[in-house]
Amino acid sequence: MEDNVITVRGLVKRYQDLIAVDGVDLDVRSGEIFSILGPNGAGKTTTVEILECIRKATEGEVTILGHDLRTGGKEIRRQIGVLPQEFNAFDLLTVRENIAFFAGMYDRQADVDELISLVDLEHKRDTYFKNLSGGLKQRVGIAIAMVNDPRIVFLDEPTTGLDPGARREVWEVIRGLRAKGRTIILTTHYMEEAEVLSDRLAIMNQGKFIALGSPSEVVAQHGGGRTCVIRGGGEAAMRSLHDMGPERDGDDVSVRIVHKEDLVSIVTALNRDGVEYEEVMLKRPTLEDVFLKLTGKSIEGGEISG
């Protein structure tokens, strides 16, 4: 059985009129990448900032590495590493100096040069932070999150605002951390990021976890099975498949596959009625579909909007 490094029960964070976190339960296992996925304002950052000892919880029990959050904040802070949202370091210090600066805050310090190679920044060692691109800055941030050789690393939206290439490079660094046995808590609003990196994930909306499990479990549980799409089928296909509860999206018609035989029935019916269409394809639900279904938020280019 895997050890839980973080246990959260009934976590609530309330501001005057607003409930930012509304009764979250969570167990994070040692060595996994756990993602919290959700639209802006869902409460992801508030949740992790409570775990990072930056914010105080209104209610709830939190244990991190065996320490109660309310009494063991100091000890917890020594053993966790954090890449905050919209991370920034000192503009006119070099990569190496910035990492050394934050290392100096801890008694237990990782080797600065090892951290630089961990995030693959040897060639930028003596470059001022302000002269780095967004992706490189985030890699410095990840190195800084590792200065105290932490067991748990929190990465709050580590790839927001990065181009796809830079995002993939950051993913590689994150995988490297897991390979070194760290537990990683990742918040993101990129579907692909959560799907590709996570061992397990939670979808958060309006302060609550509305789905929890491995990416495939979440899809299986909430994705609603496979669908058959008849592209260009139009009104004729709708009539032909009337009994099977078709749904129309423009000229495309989709039908949920409940049994294996359904696919044969569909094609048979279309042929029988002489329906013309461009193609028939089978679609598996993705995390994106699950997300849409659960949160009602639209997605553009893999990024949740509105």
């Binding site: 930056i54 802070r77 949202q85 919209e86 991370f87």
Partner: peptide, 12 residues
């Protein structure tokens, strides 16, 4: 610029 947010997570 977020440097305090980062410092807040350190023991300082």
């Amino acid at each position: 610029n977020g440097i305090f947010r980062k410092l807040a997570t350190t023991p300082m």
